[in-house]
């Protein structure tokens, strides 16, 4: 049967992997190609590379680091951050990404999802959604979580699926970086609504949090950064922990 995936996330700024709290206060933690290869050795099922600089000037530099990361990696690599067009997506794929995630640009112009899906296949189009609780629902925020959009996150996920997204990378801004666990209600709401895989993200502070999100929601994968970056545990330890509790992993 299909196993649950563990995906270490590399937030990359100016060529370095960084980690912050609630999208702010960034610290350097390492170099992407080395960290990605190390996570593969530990048993990571995929690697996500998010360029959080995402300014036009650094584009080529970032693509160079994507290539270097990909050249040493034999598990799928998702690249995101600053993808604004089909051409950007092609560049990322040509640099060695297996999947590309789009966020703000898709909210601004949803047709980018269908264009990318038609050009490259749904399997490589990941729609990243940053959601934040507002009253009784979750609202989509863009531009690294700084801009409210008025769009309902659950409805947006469904729309992204209808447009051809192959996967949803769902980050809760309420839990991101604070290490108190994934946003179970948000993850559950989105996973119930769509029939494409949902990657839960934001809030992982322990192995138990990863177990919780798999045990309590329909998430197909869990993305985590700091617990791995700060060597709090290895991917192998997380998998053993999950296996002992009846979650099927590779």
């Amino acid at each position: 049967m299909l196993t649950k995936r563990i995906i270490p996330c590399l937030d990359v700024k100016d060529g370095k992997v960084v980690k912050g709290v609630n999208f702010k206060g960034l610290r350097d933690v390492g170099y992407p190609p080395e960290m990605a290869a190390d996570y593969e050795r530990q048993g990571a099922d995929e690697i996500t590379f998010l360029d959080i600089t995402a300014s036009l000037e650094t584009r080529q530099t970032v693509l160079g680091i994507v290539s270097e990361t990909a050249s040493n990696l034999f598990v799928p690599l998702t690249v995101g951050g600053g993808i604004r067009s089909v051409a950007d997506m092609r560049d990322a794929l040509n640099a060695g990404a297996d999947k590309v995630s789009v966020n703000s640009a898709a909210v601004k112009d949803p047709s980018i999802i269908s264009e990318c899906a038609e050009s490259f296949g749904s399997q490589c189009v990941v729609v990243a959604i940053d959601g934040k609780r507002v009253g009784d629902h979750w609202e989509v925020f863009t531009h690294g979580g700084t801009k409210p959009t008025g769009i309902d996150a659950v409805e947006w996920a469904k729309r992204a699926e209808d447009l051809g997204a192959g996967e949803i990378l769902l980050t809760s801004m309420d839990t991101d970086g604070v290490k108190t666990g994934y946003d179970i209600p948000l993850t559950e709401a989105v996973a119930d609504e769509v029939s494409i895989p949902v990657i839960a993200s934001g809030g992982c502070g322990s192995m138990e949090h990863i177990y919780d999100v798999f045990a309590r929601t329909g998430a197909s994968a869990a993305l985590a950064a700091s617990i791995f970056h700060y060597n709090e545990c290895t991917v192998a330890e997380v998998k053993q922990y999950l296996r002992d509790r009846g979650i099927v992993v590779r």
């Binding site: 299909l2 995936r5 192959g166 029939s195 494409i196 197909s220 590779r250």
Partner: peptide, 26 residues
């Protein structure tokens, strides 16, 4: 859930699988 995305087991006795320690593939 479609697509089928992620690691799953391939059950095979083909010689191409010889030496494979873990039959999970992407």
């Amino acid at each position: 859930v479609i697509p089928h995305m992620g690691w799953n087991q391939v059950v095979s006795g083909d010689p191409l699988m010889s030496g494979v320690a873990d039959n999970n593939f992407y």
